[in-house]
Amino acid sequence: MKVTRHAASRRRRTSRRGPWTTATAALAATGVLLCLVMALRPDGGSDPGRTVAAPAADAPSSTARQKPSRSPSPSPSPSPSSATPTATSGASPSKTPAATPGARASASDPARAVVAEVPSAGRIRPGVTYRGLATHYDAGDGDGACLFGPSDGLMIAAMNHTDYETSKACGAYIRVRAVSGASVTVKVTNECPLPCAPGQLDLSKQAFAKLGALSAGELSITWSLLSPSTSDTVAVRYKTGSTQYWCGIQVVGHRNPVARLEVRADGAWRPLPRAEFNYFLSEQGTGCGGALRITDIYGEQLQLDGIPVRADVLQPTGVQFRQH
């Protein structure tokens, strides 16, 4: 009977709680249903437990909410100092290929052409500052290892053997600066043999005097390549003894150092080797008296036709490389 009484009492307490339990369950079910409805609404409702990316000013708000992970903040625009300029010629920047250094348009001049690659400038390169010593020598009439002949002026220099580089430096214009700040522009017409060290320039006495007293003997200097203004035009000279069977060809009066000389033979351009004495040699006579193509260190080419073999005669062409 005791057991029955406890059971009856427990059933009564249960029966008294029945209506409240039913009401609570109904409210809970209603709450779950309401949450589901809110979650399924297009605008998603507000959710204090989630951060939603703010939409862009000109974008629909639904797009920003539906694809927050695919709409990252745009990268900041580069500052003017870090932006890379793009060469344009009437085309959009995205379709304009990178310009080849040294390339120059020359469609209006049939004697000029543009190459795809800039030839090697050798040891002396544009935009590089070199260090060394300046010494001086008696330049006489200005002739030297480059075999240009007497110079109109004596602002000239002999390049050290290493940087002379088998006459690649011949005709180069060099700006020389002393520690004092004094400077002079010289043209390379000669070679300073060993033991002249790399970077050393042996200047004419007239050029050295622009930097310091001749009694100093030598000066610490820096120097760099120039592409000067000039009224001269390129000329071609065949070496003494040249014929159609053997010839040496020299370029004179060029603004920029010459990187290559080619002759036309068998329908193709063939480069000629360059000698220490600044002539391009055709040992078998290939191309002697025919078309020539001269390339400077910036990649510009001058094509010359009708230059006959006339030994030791300076033949003007009327053309010149561009200034850089």
Rank of each mutant, 00 (worst) to 15 (best):
N256P: 03
A25C: 15
N278E: 09
A7S: 11
Q315W: 07
S92F: 04
A209M: 11
A169S: 08
L154Y: 11
V251P: 04
Y173T: 05
G45E: 06
R17A: 06
R12S: 06
H6W: 06
K2P: 14
A172N: 00
G90C: 13
C247Q: 07
R131I: 00
S82W: 01
A83G: 06
S75Y: 13
G248Y: 11
Q66M: 12
S204A: 11
W246D: 03
P257M: 05
S183P: 01
G181K: 06
G153S: 14
I174K: 00
L225Q: 02
H254N: 13
D138L: 05
H6F: 09
R270N: 12
P78K: 08
Q303C: 08
R123T: 08
T63N: 08
R41I: 06
P72K: 07
L40I: 00
G140A: 07
A8H: 08
G299T: 00
A197C: 10
G140Q: 04
V52E: 14
R123D: 04
P101V: 09
W20N: 00
R13C: 09
P316R: 08
L226G: 13
A139F: 03
L226I: 01
S167G: 03
D47P: 14
S46I: 07
D266C: 02
R41M: 09
A157T: 09
V251C: 10
G306M: 05
A291Y: 00
A158L: 03
Q66V: 08
A207I: 04
R17Y: 03
P42S: 09
R70T: 11
A213P: 14
T166F: 06
Q284M: 03
G299A: 04
Q66R: 15
V114K: 01
K2Q: 15
P72F: 10
I174S: 01
G31V: 15
A83P: 04
S62D: 13
Q315R: 04
P119F: 02
A26G: 11
A182T: 02
D47W: 00
Q303K: 02
S167W: 02
E117W: 04
R16K: 13
C247M: 08
P42G: 04
R13K: 13
C247E: 07
Y173L: 07
I307M: 12
A291K: 00
P195A: 08
S180K: 11
K67W: 15
P316L: 07
T86S: 04
A111M: 09
S89Y: 12
I174P: 04
S89A: 15
Y279R: 12
S71K: 04
L314M: 14
T222E: 08
P228Q: 07
K187A: 05
I294M: 00
Y164P: 14
K205A: 14
K205G: 15
